[in-house]
Design a binder for these strands. Structure first.
Lengths: 261, 261
DNA sequence: AAGCTGAGGTTCAAATAATGAACCATAGGC
DNA sequence: GCCTATGGTTCATTATTTGAACCTCAGCTT
């Protein structure tokens, strides 16, 4: 692996910890030598990607990503374009609607809209969505090239609940269904008692960039209702994509041919 | 320079461009070989720090920094803590108040509050503040260790207006004044007709992390008024620092001894 | 249509930078 | 005063990075 990759993985590891850590821990967590970890941290610090607490000597994410994020969002405000769609869907569905974005090989939650009712599903911004066990993950995978599906299903698949589907063959079946109808359904895949439906937001080349998902308590959600949520998520996702990518002309490869090529 | 440093500089360069650029341009701007630039871009893309438009093949900042920024801000919400202070100062001063943060060797604007009047100074979020020619830059430098002041003043200093002070000796004089009274004043240093006063937000160890600045049209600003703004900026900066760093105990080295050591 | 131009992208021997075992320094606990 | 654990550093060894030259393709010129 390249040095750059290792340094960025360190940054990623650091970002996933819920507390500041010292040099020794970082080295251990990243499977790096202490000297190497230190050199990376110094270099990352020089550029503002990490900072070291001058007192405790522990490290945390620095302010450079904040600056980059501002620039990216200013030039490419995905979230601000998507949020109104998510809000609208939360209103009409009266359930929790969340938006995820694919980044660095993972699908992470970037926005959540709660419906105005007490009994609802709680989703945290920033939470990561396993591909095999969430509606968003399935919706995302279903529209990925075959090679990436294979890669995702080769990894060990965690069984989060009694209902989590972990058999790669069965998952492929779910992906086919998803691709056919335009949205996925996860029946208690990540957490018991929760059902959700999701549809991918796709770039003009057909590649998914994230997902819109509706999550509801299983107890009050009928088969008809979850399919309706799925269709609405699909409409929202398409709306976001259209507004975000605007008049960008489609590439030679059409969305249809791109899927699972 | 380390490979990591070069890759992060590439990212920095990419972030400073106001349009998406192709491989050849990036290589030229970063003084890198085309093959090297490409390897960096591929590696950065793998981790979501850049993305390539699949159609135009140009590169832009990716979404990974957005994720990191969210995490940092969630754990360490500098801006959300500082904004109320900036807003309050914009109200009482009735002038533009902006907040900057030091990152990657530069001071960049991270928030601006406009006062409710038509004739006012416009400052853009994201703009970089030269150390020698802005109130923020001077306020920041004045509380830095001597070695860093020397380093900053060794570089060639651009003369932005007829009033920009570029003589290192004179600048040191301004820094001494600033350190003594707790805030800096820039008299048309960056732009003619603008006067501003700034004070540093300092970490518990005394190190400045950013600045609060008030910028006003020279035409309506008296000597007394700008000193008043400076004092208010200082109060705001101290308020932010206190709220941000909270109960963090000071290190052995006190703020006083740390200055220009 | 043939030939050019300049873009993105790739290869592989040579050059350079990364690596990590062993080291030092310091702080806290006993 | 010793022990241990932490952060931090050194330098000979080793693996990665480097870049000139190359390929490929799309658009333009003649």
């Amino acid at each position: 692996m390249s040095t750059i990759g290792k340094a960025l993985s360190l940054l990623d590891t650091l970002s996933r910890l819920d507390k500041e850590v010292g040099l020794t821990d970082i080295a251990r967590l990243c499977a790096l030598d202490k000297a190497t970890a230190r050199r990376f941290l110094v270099e990352l610090e020089r550029h503002g990607f990490v900072e070291q607490d001058p007192d405790s000597r522990r490290y945390r994410i620095g302010s450079a990503p904040v600056r980059l994020a501002r620039i990216r969002e200013a030039r490419y405000p995905f979230l601000s374009i998507a949020v109104p769609f998510i809000k609208a869907l939360a209103d009409t569905s009266a359930e929790t609607v969340h938006l995820s974005e694919f980044s660095g090989g993972r699908l992470s939650t970037i926005h959540v809209e709660d419906p105005p009712r007490a009994h609802r599903i709680i989703v945290d911004v920033g939470s990561l969505l396993p591909f095999h066990a969430t509606a968003s993950g399935l919706a995302f995978l279903a529209f990925c090239p075959r090679a990436e599906i294979d890669q995702a299903l080769r990894k060990p698949l965690e069984k989060f609940t009694d209902h989590t589907v972990v058999d790669p063959h069965l998952i492929r079946g779910l992906l086919d269904e998803t691709a056919a109808r335009g949205f996925s359904i996860s029946h208690q895949g990540l957490e018991a008692g929760v059902i959700s439906a999701a549809a991918p937001v796709r770039a003009p080349d057909g590649r998914p960039v994230g997902c819109v998902a509706v999550a509801a308590p299983l107890s009050r959600t009928t088969e008809t209702a979850i399919h309706e949520f799925g269709a609405q998520a699909n409409a929202a996702a398409n709306g976001i994509s259209e507004k975000y990518y605007g008049s960008e002309r489609l590439t030679g490869t059409s969305p249809e041919t791109r899927r699972r090529d």
